[in-house]
Nucleic acid binder design. Structure first.
Lengths: 179, 179
DNA sequence: ATCAGCATGTAAGGCGTTACATGATTCA
DNA sequence: TGAATCATGTAACGCCTTACATGCTGAT
């Protein structure tokens, strides 16, 4: 695996459950994972190609047979599983937040207060919208917690719900303080 | 300003209050701003050079005169102020969170539950430590809220406190759920 | 017929980190 | 004397996004 390219483990993790094409992987990332990690075609396909070369994934046998459309599903190899678990067990993590909203607020003194208030309101409505989605995911996952993997999905979604609720409380406070 | 290089506005924002050297800017970023935006020497010095060329910043007159050490303080120009305020007023923002902790947790089913618990505990202690710092900043800023810019600093710090507290609550819940 | 979605991939270019190179000053 | 901090800058390299190129399928 490339030194610091986390897209590799995202792909490896997704392939644990079932073979997927690059296109499938993109869809999985865009639905749920995107709240804490992103990925584009331009990063997925090259990563898949690299990992096939190094033996972490392989094309499934049905790759060409399935039909006329050229779907190329990949599956994880034993080597790939080793890399994935050793990453999971590695205690080094990089958690990073890059919020332009906070950057703008930090320099809010430069212009009128109303600009900062707009920045906050902007953020607020974006968060409200996404919180709606997260709560829906959360509710649906709660119903199927018996399956073990859903516990993990539930936890990550709950992280989103908890923090987004905290964001909204902060928005209230911040607006009050500026008005 | 380069199309999407936010380090430019970070620098511009910092230069609003006083002339600073690249080294000073790095220190400012590392203390406080780093919670929501980062910057390294390798990005600061080239940005400063570019912005001098495009007239957003300029070297102060005292640049060489101040002493034997080669300190090169920059100040913001009117052009720079224009860029800064138009960025502040622009409602487009990119807020992005990349938490490897959540990624690991999402794929937690792959190995033993204890691995995920360790991942959470790891995160928890990191957050506890930084929360201590944030609360200290918050307390100190609260005392000097009369100065307008401190209100903005206070708000960003409070954002950190609010969310980190939410993280810790989530850690408790998550550990309980896995045990 | 045409548009949206499925599907794979490449190329250019921007952003940013890390490591390196260099050297002065301050303090124990 | 040696370590830490001050201070500026470059070079290599990696990661990722955006846009492009291409073409099929299915629904309206």
């Amino acid at each position: 695996m490339a030194k610091d390219r986390k897209i590799d483990v995202v792909i490896l993790g997704l392939l644990c459950h079932e073979p997927l094409t690059g296109y499938d992987i993109k869809k999985r990332i865009d639905g749920g994972i995107r709240f804490f990690w992103k990925g584009s075609f331009g990063s997925i396909y090259p990563a898949l190609a690299d990992m096939e070369k190094t033996g972490l994934v392989r094309k499934t046998m049905s790759s060409k047979a399935s039909g006329s459309r050229e779907r190329i599903p990949y599956e994880i190899t034993e080597q790939g599983m080793k890399i994935l678990t050793s990453w999971l067990e590695d205690s080094k993590v990089s958690n990073e937040l890059k919020y332009e909203t906070l950057l703008k607020l930090f320099f809010g003194e430069v212009t009128d207060k109303s600009v900062s208030i707009k920045t906050i309101e902007n953020f607020e409505s974006q968060i409200e919208q996404e919180l709606g989605l997260l709560r829906m995911y959360q509710k649906n996952l709660y119903k199927v917690l018996t399956e073990e993997k859903h516990i993990y999905y539930y936890l990550t979604v709950s992280f989103g719900v908890e923090t987004y609720e905290a964001y909204l409380r902060w928005c209230q406070m911040a607006k009050k303080m500026l008005e």
